[in-house]
C-alpha cells in the first residue's frame, strides 16, 4: 500500500507538472496568445464577443490569476470552446475523438504486446537459433520504420492496389452506431489496417525487451536450480523465467503508451480515422489551440492512469513489492 501511495503521489506531481507546462507554453511564446487565438476566430466574432472570449480563454488578469482560473476550469473539464467547430465546447469533441483512439490503441497495444512477448519468449528460449537470429533484428528494425511510412504503405497496398479494406473512417457512413453485431463488425473491419500499422511498428520493442530480459534471467541461479530439479522445459520457461521477465515489461508497457499514442496519431491521419490524431491535425491546421492543449491534458491523464494500473498489476504479481508495502 505504501508503495502505491507513493506512486500515486508521484503521478499527482507529474500531472501538475504537465498542466503547468501546458499553461506556460502559450504564455512564454513570443506574441500575445490571446490575439493569436482571436486571429484564428477571425470573421466569426462580433466585437462585443471578443472581450468575453478573452475572459473565457483565461488571458486576462495577472499571470497568477490566470493560473488559478485555468486550474479552476480544468477541475470542471472545461477546456474552452473549439474554434473550428465553433461554438462547440472542446470537451465534447475531445471525448468523441478519444473514444475512437481508445479503440485503436487498445486493440493495437493488446496485439502487439501479445505478439511481441510470445516471440520474445520463443527467441530467448532458442537464442542463437534460426528464429532468434533472423527475426529478432528484423522485428526490431520494423520498430524503426516510422508509423507514417508503414501506414502509408499498408494504405496504398490494401486500399488502392488491392482494395480489400475500406479507405478510411471508423465505420460505414450510413450506419447508426449502437451495440449490435453489424456495428461491431464494421468498426472491426475499419480498424484492421490502422491497428495493423501500429502493431507492425511496435511489437518489435516487446520482442526485444522480453528476449533480453529472459536471456539475462536464464543466467540466474534460480533458473539453474529449476533445471537441476528436472522440471520440464515448458515449466521452466513459462513458470520460472517468463513469469519473472514479464514484470519489467508491464512497467515499460505503461511507459510506452505515450509512444503508442504518437503512432496512433499518425496512423489516424493516414487512414482518416476520427480519433484524437486526426482532430489534432485539424486543430493544428486551423490553430485551434484549445483543442491542442486539451489533448495534451487528456493524454497525460490517460498515460498516468495506465502507469498507476501497471503499478497495481506489479504489486499483485510481485510478492516483493507487496511486502515492501507492508514493512
Amino acid at each position: 500500500m505504501a508503495f502505491l501511495l507513493r506512486r500515486l503521489g508521484f503521478y499527482f506531481g507529474a500531472f501538475f507538472v504537465a498542466i503547468t507546462l501546458n499553461f506556460l507554453i502559450p504564455r512564454l511564446m513570443p506574441g500575445d496568445p490571446a490575439t493569436r487565438i482571436l486571429l484564428s476566430l477571425r470573421g466569426k466574432l462580433r466585437p462585443d464577443q471578443i472581450d468575453a472570449i478573452r475572459k473565457t480563454y483565461g488571458f486576462s488578469g495577472s499571470l497568477w490569476d490566470q493560473y488559478l482560473q485555468y486550474l479552476w476550469r480544468l477541475a470542471h473539464f472545461d477546456f474552452g470552446i473549439s474554434t473550428v467547430n465553433f461554438p462547440e465546447p472542446t470537451a465534447s469533441l475531445l471525448f468523441y475523438a478519444a473514444g475512437w483512439t481508445l479503440v485503436l490503441v487498445g486493440a493495437a497495444t493488446t496485439l502487439s504486446f501479445g505478439i511481441g512477448i510470445t516471440m520474445g519468449i520463443w527467441s530467448a528460449w532458442r537464442r542463437g537459433g534460426f528464429f532468434d537470429t533472423f527475426f529478432t533484428p528484423i522485428n526490431v528494425m520494423l520498430n524503426a520504420f516510422t508509423p507514417a511510412v508503414v501506414a502509408l504503405l499498408l494504405w496504398y497496398a490494401f486500399t488502392m492496389q488491392w482494395p480489400i479494406f475500406p479507405l478510411g473512417r471508423a465505420h460505414e457512413m450510413n450506419l447508426t452506431p449502437g451495440f449490435n453485431l453489424e456495428t461491431l463488425l464494421s468498426v472491426a473491419w475499419h480498424a484492421v489496417l490502422p491497428v495493423a500499422s501500429i502493431v507492425i511498428v511496435s511489437f518489435g520493442a516487446w520482442h526485444l525487451g522480453m528476449r533480453n530480459t529472459m536471456i539475462n534471467l536464464l543466467n540466474e541461479d534460480f533458473v539453474l536450480l529449476a533445471k537441476a530439479k528436472g522440471l520440464s522445459d515448458r515449466r521452466i520457461r513459462n513458470r520460472y523465467v517468463a513469469r519473472n521477465a514479464i514484470l519489467p515489461q508491464i512497467t515499460s508497457l505503461a511507459l510506452s503508451i505515450g509512444f503508442v499514442l504518437g503512432g496512433a496519431f499518425i496512423t489516424e491521419v493516414v487512414f482518416n480515422y476520427p480519433g484524437l490524431g486526426k482532430f489534432t491535425l485539424n486543430a493544428i491546421q486551423t490553430r485551434d489551440y484549445s483543442f491542442i492543449q486539451a489533448q495534451l491534458i487528456l493524454l497525460t491523464m490517460s498515460v498516468l492512469v495506465a502507469n498507476l494500473a501497471s503499478d497495481v498489476l506489479n504489486v499483485i504479481l510481485d510478492p516483493r513489492l507487496r511486502s515492501a508495502g507492508r514493512a
Binding site: 508521484f10 503521478y11 506531481g13 507529474a14 507538472v17 504537465a18 507546462l21 501546458n22 507554453i25 502559450p26 511564446m29 496568445p33 511507459l255 503508451i257 505515450g258 509512444f259 499514442l261 504518437g262 496519431f265 489534432t280 486543430a283 493544428i284 490553430r287 489551440y289 491542442i292 492543449q293 489533448q295 495534451l296 493524454l299 497525460t300 498515460v303 498516468l304 502507469n307
Partner: peptide, 23 residues
C-alpha cells in the same frame, strides 16, 4: 529522479505538438 520520471511518464508527441504549434 522526480523530473526524470516525469519526463518518462509525460506523453512526448502530444507535448511536442503543443510546443510546436505555438512555435
Amino acid at each position: 529522479t522526480f523530473f526524470v520520471n516525469v519526463s518518462l511518464v509525460l506523453p512526448a508527441l502530444p507535448l511536442i505538438i503543443v510546443l510546436a504549434s505555438f512555435i
